[in-house]
Amino acid sequence: MTKKVIVLGEVREGALRNVSFEAIGAAKKISVGGEIVAVLLGESIQSLGAEMIHYGADRVVTVEHPHLKSYTSDGFSQAFMAVVESEKPDAVVFGHTALGKDLSPKVASKLKSGLVSDVTGIEGEGDGAVFIRPIFSGKAFEKVKVKDGIVFVTVRPNNIEPLAHDASRSGDVSSISVDITNLRTIIKEVVRKSSEGVDLSEAKVVIAGGRGVKSEEGFEPLKELAKVLNGAVGASRGACDADYCDYSLQIGQTGKVVTPDLYIAAGISGAIQHLAGMSNSKIIVAINKDPEANIFKVADYGIVGDLFEVIPMLTEEFKKLKAN
């Protein structure tokens, strides 16, 4: 049976995040040809609707309100639930981002539904859809099915294929007005620490440093390389505990779980708790002075050497490549 699926598009700094297009890809599998309705919430976001349609949404519903300029769970849940009430979907898909993680449990609670979060793969379609998600931060996986109620999933960035972009697709972009009241959270200020470059969980390339980086300044060559590859910088718990970097960069079972196309581990020994956070990356490169380091056991390519020699050489080599 076909299913009507609502996808929440996520806007950051005036642009749609990639994971929103991947969420449409997931919705396509769940819908079995049913209608896919993209929802955009914000202050002035109407113009972004077309892009969701180019990536496969059939129609877009927007809610615009000054109170939706910044994300709050109260504001966004009121707006989203208003759309749910008018659209009556069979399924809902969000990205598993900071916003998605914060909002989805509240919406699921209001829908009295289950919620399969952090989905990395989908088998089957429609009522038979089975969702694959990592448990123990990727040390194992589980296959989950929804038994009852609305099918609600959040998809991890970088894992579900988006549909091909098709600029010839067109569809209706409508808006509904929602009275947004009683916001219990006021955001006074946002301090951007990650303003340099790409978000760690969405990055296609991650350059991570461990204890071998030795100091805060030691991360500089990694940042240089990340810049050239349009990637993000991450770290092991060892590097964070030693205060070489902020905890927000930590990758591992405590910390972030990342699955980029390319993961370069520099000066990371490869403790089991770190491997849990990155071993499902597509390609892993290890750079370590110690040939016995555990990280080489999961690496596709390894270089035994000093990261302070190897990383700058790699940066130069990639620069040359880009110049050609």
Binding site: G114, V130, G138, A140, F141, V146, K147, N280, K297, Y301
Partner: peptide, 20 residues
């Protein structure tokens, strides 16, 4: 429960790759 775990499995073991 609204959801049901059908199966739990381990990811394919990663083969150690090539040290250059």
């Amino acid at each position: 429960a609204k959801t049901e775990t059908l199966e739990i499995y381990l990811p394919p073991k990663k083969e150690a790759g090539r040290v250059l």
